[in-house]
Design a protein around this nucleic acid. Structure first.
Length: 296
DNA sequence: TACCAGGTAAAAA
DNA sequence: TTTTTACATGGT
């Protein structure tokens, strides 16, 4: 067991509720995070509970044998522990819409997938089709190629996926084209010619360029990986359909914005444009009862 | 039943 | 160079 002290306000239960609202099917209210991860190739579960709200304290453990340092690093990565929400809230305070949304969602952060590789595969699956459809496809991928630990499925590592035939990947519901993207990515990462983790140390532009050089990753995927997979708080996929729709409702005239309108509307929220977008998407989901969750 | 959903690369013009 | 098209699945 190890204790983690996240920066700034944090509400794990709220963050779990929002995560549940973004995944299809009924989502039971939970107060503990059970995140699948890999430690030196071995599948493990990272269990996180919040023992104190202010200042936040997380209690982290695993049913498997995981070193304290490793466990701490995993929990900090998954929960975005280094992010301090205070300056973001201060920026939003006087705004008619975001002041209310940030007060309602006080302490909300998203969860990062444990590896950038998994995040990159998530991005491919979510290109063009609905989040629900993509979720089902990933479910089949992980059940076919991943490992189960204590009822949780751990995402397959690059070596496992690079060994799979593209038609085998396609049988999980990916288009053959997307199956090729996944296969090529897995091979590059697996053989060491592509180091996705190096993106963590790069600036936004450099990281974006690294992934966009790969077949299957356009601007949308790069931005999506940066904000969701790496936690870059100022990055927004402005041409994203969901972003354009929700920002149109929340900050515009009600109808879907163009990418240029998204860019313009978010200008006052630098350097937290990604966070603003996440909060508006989350609020939209909850108020529509997505995943069975809801708020006032 | 269609049509749309958190795009991308390749073909066609 | 710019515009069109094929792609896969789930929800409405």
């Amino acid at each position: 067991m190890v204790l983690v002290h996240p920066a700034g306000p944090y509400d794990l239960t709220l963050s779990l509720k929002v995560a549940g609202a973004f995944s299809p099917g009924p989502s039971a209210a939970v107060s503990a995070l059970r995140a699948p991860a890999r430690v030196q190739g071995a599948a493990v579960i990272v269990e996180v509970r919040q023992t104190q709200i202010e200042p936040p304290v997380l209690r982290v453990s695993s049913p498997q044998r995981v070193g304290r340092d490793r466990l701490e690093a995993l929990a900090e990565w998954i929960t975005l522990a280094e992010l301090d929400l205070s300056p973001f809230y201060a920026l939003c305070e006087g705004h008619p819409r975001l002041g209310r949304v940030t007060r309602l969602l006080h302490g909300l952060k998203h969860f990062r997938p444990t590896s950038v590789f998994e995040m990159a595969v998530i991005a491919i699956t979510e290109q063009q089709i609905s989040l629900a459809a993509a979720y089902r496809i990933r479910e089949r991928l992980v059940r076919r190629f991943g490992q189960e630990v204590g009822g949780v499925w751990v995402f397959p590592n690059p070596e496992r996926l690079s060994g799979a035939d593209p038609s085998e990947l396609a049988s999980c519901g990916l288009s053959f084209r997307k199956a090729e993207y996944v296969s090529e990515l897995a091979r590059s990462v697996g053989d060491g010619s592509l180091d996705l983790d190096s993106m963590k140390a790069m600036g936004d532009d450099e990281a974006r360029a690294l992934i966009m050089a790969r077949r299957g990753f356009g601007r949308w995927s790069a931005d999506y990986i940066l904000v969701r997979g790496l936690g870059r708080a100022d990055v927004v996929p402005a041409d994203d359909l969901g972003v354009r729709t929700v920002l149109g409702r929340a900050l515009g005239a009600g109808s879907r914005m163009t990418a240029a309108e998204v860019d313009h509307a978010l200008l006052p929220f630098r350097p937290y444009r990604g966070l603003v977008t996440f909060y508006l998407l989350a609020h939209d989901r909850l108020s529509r009862g997505g995943g069975g969750a809801s708020i006032q």
